[in-house]
Design a protein around this nucleic acid. Sequence first.
DNA 1: CCGGGCATCCAAACCGCTTTGGATTTCGCC
DNA 2: GGCGAAATCCAAAGCGGTTTGGATGCCCGG
Lengths: 345, 345
Amino acid sequence: MSKGVNLKELSQRLNLSQTTVSRALNGYPEVSAETRKRVAEMADKLGYAPNSQARRLATGRSMAIGHVIPRSIHEMMNPIFLEFIAGAGETYSQHGYDMIISVVEDDREEDAYRQIASRKKADGVIIHGPAQDEHRHLLLKELNLPFVVHGRIPGAEKETSWIDMNNRRAFERATNLLLDLGHTRIALLNGLENMDFARRRRRGFEDALSARNLTPDAALVRSADMTEPYGCDSAMEMLNSDNPPTAFLVSSMISAIGVARAIGQCGLKTGKDVSIITHDDALSFLPNSGEVPIFTCTRSSVRYAGEKAADLLLNMIATPGAKPTSLHLDAELILGQSTGPAPTR
Amino acid sequence: MSKGVNLKELSQRLNLSQTTVSRALNGYPEVSAETRKRVAEMADKLGYAPNSQARRLATGRSMAIGHVIPRSIHEMMNPIFLEFIAGAGETYSQHGYDMIISVVEDDREEDAYRQIASRKKADGVIIHGPAQDEHRHLLLKELNLPFVVHGRIPGAEKETSWIDMNNRRAFERATNLLLDLGHTRIALLNGLENMDFARRRRRGFEDALSARNLTPDAALVRSADMTEPYGCDSAMEMLNSDNPPTAFLVSSMISAIGVARAIGQCGLKTGKDVSIITHDDALSFLPNSGEVPIFTCTRSSVRYAGEKAADLLLNMIATPGAKPTSLHLDAELILGQSTGPAPTR
DNA sequence: CCGGGCATCCAAACCGCTTTGGATTTCGCC
DNA sequence: GGCGAAATCCAAAGCGGTTTGGATGCCCGG
């Protein structure tokens, strides 16, 4: 349990060959039970742990998964990303994989992937935040680097492995709930709509409206980075307009908090005068739980998504030729305090 | 620019030895300018990139920095951590280092560090969130693994390298500001007080009070994980008590948002009836900027801290014997909309 | 008693790079 | 013209594992 012996010393101490010791430790069959035990004991007496670089070199597998994060604020700052990472990281360490994260300038993202492939830094990667004009998957295929998408790449659903929640359906259901409560002027504060998930959410919103012969009012639909001020400012303007909305559908808890602030500042009451439904990624520092959660929401744990994405990826790496697989998660629709019947004038 | 040649093939194509090619590419002097150029051209024509595992094995340096994150919610979920990582990650990639993150069960944290050391997974690590009864630094010294602390380890300030903001001073100044505005009943919503930073903040708060012969009211001081509901619930209870505070000093923007929500729900106005000063870590998804920021705050960019911590660590690794160094950052005190003179009854 | 089969174990090659310790050539200078 | 220094380049020895292709010894049936 200390100095750091290597395989050679260990095998000498045991009067065995490196081959045998290596096999004993790695569970190969051609070594007697007794020897294996002897080896194991000596190994932990001497605190032997194989040098990972050497092992990686010899096996040709780097035992690591890469996550490339463009430095741009649109991605890394995202607490959702953090939670995803936490989930994935757990899976990795359970399987002996390392997680390596590269924060790079936006214009060097492709370069980062190429490096991972050519220098064999990772055995696979995860694509975060697929956009409308996505291209990373093509590069990765060319590089022959296994990958899993968190989200979906429009037009490449069949040929890639991905995990995603049913964004369209979630927002359709949320919209329907509001409609059922009598709201007809519903605002949508969406995420950036060059992101695939945001498009799907908007589609769900629009589908629900048109199913009841309503059309969205362009003045009530916005799209931006999901910050708190975005929620507050947008809501403030809309509430002060001539024809204010009675309900808000918001893409993130953080912005929803902003909306609630705006509502309060206008002297109105959330869940009474104005309703809010938000999507809740179940971020651990923004709990929305309790008997009756603060916000009515569509909820889907992004941490869980991270775990599953990692599972998928590790499987792909273990069985190379396998067909792409994907996981479609459904969000729960949870009633909280932020919704109520549309106020009658 | 494709297949992935290795050094051997590259050198054969050039009719040079591996030695020479390696040296040419790594900028060693004992190779002619002409040869170097020839090598460089062929290298990028063939898309050569050294296999990192092999290089690491040969050099004995893993060119990676480790971050061990206990799975426990108290740490990883922390968006502050994310922002720190983003900063550090940038520095790493600028210097050709990888960042490897291990998410581990709480009781396997020590194990994770031992593995990093014995399997040579990283050349150094960063200690996050030093607590009151900190011990990781002792382990790391025993393991001979360079490290930098984000925060300070009480009692080990001289013998460790760290970067920290002046928590005590920041909260002292914030408290003084409130006192100057005439507030005397000031609540403190602190982070978990087994964390070093939280202790210092409380000290700053108490120092400022006692300098004016005031003593903190225990009913107005709390300590917990810095979530939104924590802020809201705490504020709600205090505001509804017999002797409510007129100002809140809050350890994080997220909780401060909760406090603001509570104030609104009580029908009061933030910045008028009740003041708030929060600490602002300058998280990118929680901007508190603008002409007059929403919250009056003490601000210190944790992203910047991440960059600097990485710098410190890389320096330590580059110059082994060097003395521990540290960086003490001062927070800015920024006036926003959330503070005003104490209301007169 | 002998040869095949099985259980064990080992020497050596290999993974792809860095680096040591020369070997060879070139060049300036006396 | 000869000689040492400087400039170039190379073969080979690591780095610390895994893995191939046997050896060796033992047991058993014929």
